[in-house]
Amino acid sequence: MLIIAGRSFRSRLFGGTGKFSSPAVMKEALDASGCEMVTVALRRVDLADPADDIMSVLDRERYLFLPNTSGARDAGEAVRLAHLARASGGGEWLKLEVTPDPRTLLPDPIETLKATEILVKEGFHVLPYMNADPILALRLQDVGAAAVMPLGSPIGTNQGVLTKAMIEIIIDQAQVPVVVDAGLGAPSHAALAMEMGADAVLVNTAIAVAGDPVRMARAFAMAVEAGRAAYESGLGMVSKDAAASSPEDGLGFLR
């Protein structure tokens, strides 16, 4: 069972709530995905249409909200958003995103580390979104991050796990759960991340913009489950040259 900050999760698929065509489609897709944690963003109420509260369709008993700090460009803004999230009833959970570059939305490692340190001290369960940098993962872990969320590829690009080699190191070294976030465009990408030993994956765009988001949500759920089962079962390795015993040419010196 996956445990983050003392809370256990049956599903290793985390959902996003952005980019859906309607609140109804979002709800149906998330219900089909089986996920228990969903990310949400914080924005000003649209005063021209104040009734447009898409989050009200989601059952707060069923879904743990993971508020993000999207839009924050530095640690200070992220901390402010975190405080607003907590006041909004987000509890202590926080997906920390600090993305100064509006084009790529790649996370700023320095500001992310700073903000994590501050927010952990304030009692938040911080899950920082980060580039797939193994040392950064360890530094974030050292200052108390509840999990780390390395990106598979730039957000929204659907390119899959381009950072495979780095994420493998992160998984190998981390003591906190590793949640692969961003860039997972197909169920096979999610399955790959899970086979590698990721503790969970977060998928938003690929489900929200699919032709049939509900079926795609189900497909991701199955892929995550399959990948995890494969990881736990111990994958059979591709056997290249070790199938038979070979001569000990180099070991003639042994007595």
Partner: peptide
């Protein structure tokens, strides 16, 4: 034991 040759190669 029978794989010492392969192990040597991989280790090297």
């Amino acid at each position: 034991k029978p794989y010492m040759g392969v192990m040597a190669e991989k280790s090297a």
